[in-house]
């Protein structure tokens, strides 16, 4: 166990806990954009920067990925921290001036108009969609293309993916609504041969049978709906939970979440 102080409040947490989690336990809110509980820490948006003090050391780190250390002092909203966060939001606002999430953040921080040229994009490149498609669904239908200022999220060669299972997880995690589900495109899957149909639960090894009573129209799937309601998030994240708890059959899982 490790004891540290966040904003002058002492707390003892397990080794390996991130600063974000530790702060959360104390009810201290730190803004994030690229963080998701069900995914590995990524540390890309840098909105969650906090100041740490340790012996002679004083620097800024990302709370979402930095682990707690014994005797560490964390300051989550010093002037310096707020100033840096404001600049980061200003960067994002000039990139995506019409995205609600970013506009709200900017409003809260008192940024009216960014001092930079605006780019009118939707995507902030937080990588949530790419990570959920790779880490959770295990599909990798979308990925990052290019690098630096040309970096974007795309399917290979900017063509309709032939591996996408239409689970919609990318769209559901996107904080800026940059990814839309196109029902027409999803229906494309129905035209596939029977053997090529993919049920996301079967794909994750949660169920074994091959025939779907909903004709692979996931949006009609009751199981799907129930999991969605129980978790309050996209059902794709259920998979990780199930795998973690080593519950192989989704029935017992369903039973568990219905209780």
């Amino acid at each position: 166990m490790i004891t540290l102080a966040v904003d002058n409040q002492e707390i003892t947490v397990k080794e390996g806990t991130t600063l974000l989690k530790a702060s959360e336990k104390l009810g201290i809110e730190i803004p994030t954009l690229c963080y998701h509980e069900g995914l590995l820490p990524y540390g890309a948006c840098r909105l969650c920067v906090v100041e740490i003090f340790k012996e002679k050391e004083n620097r800024m780190v990302a709370a979402c990925s930095f682990p707690v250390e014994e005797g560490m002092k964390v300051v989550t909203s010093s002037d310096r921290v707020l100033k840096r966060r404001r600049m980061i939001v200003e960067f994002l606002l000039s990139r995506c001036p019409d995205v609600k999430t970013i506009k709200d953040l900017a409003d809260r921080m008192g940024i009216k108009k960014p001092r930079f040229k605006s780019k009118n994009l939707d995507c902030i490149l937080c990588g949530l969609c790419v990570r959920v498609c790779n880490e959770i669904a295990g599909i990798g239908a979308i990925g990052f293309v290019s690098r630096g200022k040309k970096l974007k999220v795309d399917t290979p060669f900017h063509m309709a993916s032939d591996v996408c299972i239409g689970c919609g997880a990318c769209s559901s995690v996107c904080p800026t609504d940059a990814i839309e589900m196109e029902l027409d495109a999803v229906k494309r899957f129905l035209e596939l041969l029977g053997s090529e149909h993919k049920c996301r639960y079967a794909l994750m090894g949660l169920i074994s049978y091959k025939v779907c009573s909903n004709n692979y129209e996931c949006w009609k799937c009751k199981i799907d709906q129930r999991i969605r309601d129980a978790l309050g998030t996209h059902p794709i994240f259920a998979a990780k939970k199930i795998k973690k708890e080593k519950v192989n059959q989704y029935f017992s899982f369903l039973k568990k979440i219905q209780e």
Binding site: C45, R46, M87, L125, G148
Partner: peptide, 21 residues
């Protein structure tokens, strides 16, 4: 650096571009 930044984190990707501008 604008050319070589991987583009993953916001300050490096956006900040360098703004300074360059």
């Amino acid at each position: 650096l604008d050319d070589e930044s991987c583009g993953k984190c916001v300050p490096c990707r956006e900040g360098i571009e703004k300074m360059r501008e």
